[in-house]
Amino acid sequence: MWWWWIPLVILVVVAATVGGFLVYRRGRHGGGLPVAHVDRLTKLKAYRSAMRRYRWLTAAALVLVLVGGGVTSVIAARPAAVDAQQNEDYKRDILLCLDVSGSMVGVDAEIMRVFQNIVKGLNGERIGLRVFDASGYMAFPMTSDYEYIMDQLGLYERAFDGTLGPDEDFDYQAGTSSVSGASLVGDGLAGCANDFGDLSDDNDRPRSIILATDNIVNGNQIYSLEQAGQLAVDNEVRVYAINPFDYPLDTASQQLQTVAEGTGGEYYPMDLGSTVSGIIDNINSIEAGYIQTPPEVQVVDQPGNRPLLLVIVVGVLLVVAWRARI
């Protein structure tokens, strides 16, 4: 109960102010001249009507002062609207990591098509593409240059489909067979996991790899798939594996599933019921959960037309005060 004296203080302050004002009014005669027989003026009929006008003007000025004060205090309080926006753009990095061995080309072309559709709706996400067979080749690094991405995706799509134009001299397998072997998934995934440029802690962009492979390894790998998976985990990269040739009891399929899920990602077998676009949608919705975009709260001042009102009030007040010679 410490606050009981607050009304008391307010009362004292108000009383002191009013009292001081009255004393000031009383003592103000220092500047003026005392005159006698004021009834010479006050008994006039014209005086009474003039006095009435004066009172009205004074009252109007008082009202204007109050209104102006009110408007001023409202403006001074800075009326604002809180605008909470959930920004829908997810600033994440996606690396397409495609096995371009002969068996995978059809799926790769499908992924290209799906991603061309996705890219049209992106804003702020970065996409990179690495293809691998025996060795990995970076088709294009992480970029948000969507025009370029579209070009490259289109080019690879046509290359995978074998529908390259006559003036297009492009080999999607270039750089993927610099060592002996085929489908060295461990090396491919390890290369992909190292493709994310900025791995420092303050870069909170979610990282993911879409890995399309059948995990049929043919040759000596430097990285085993598990080691590559561990590299992905170290780099906080989730691996979403798409396997077009899934056999539930196949060790290759099981290994791929274990590694993918070990990184926090998913494993998608391509069976009759699933499509690439469905899988990508699924991946997107999972990834959306990792995006740490807090709702953006904006406090927007909304003075409305009050400043204008204040200007008008002050203007009218000045005119009234001048008229009343207050």
Binding site: G32, L33, A36, V38, R53, Y54
Partner: peptide, 18 residues
Amino acid sequence: PPVWAVDGGVEIPEYLRR
């Protein structure tokens, strides 16, 4: 200069005096 009435001490408003 402003003037005030010796009876009552009320100042006569400028508005009226002008």
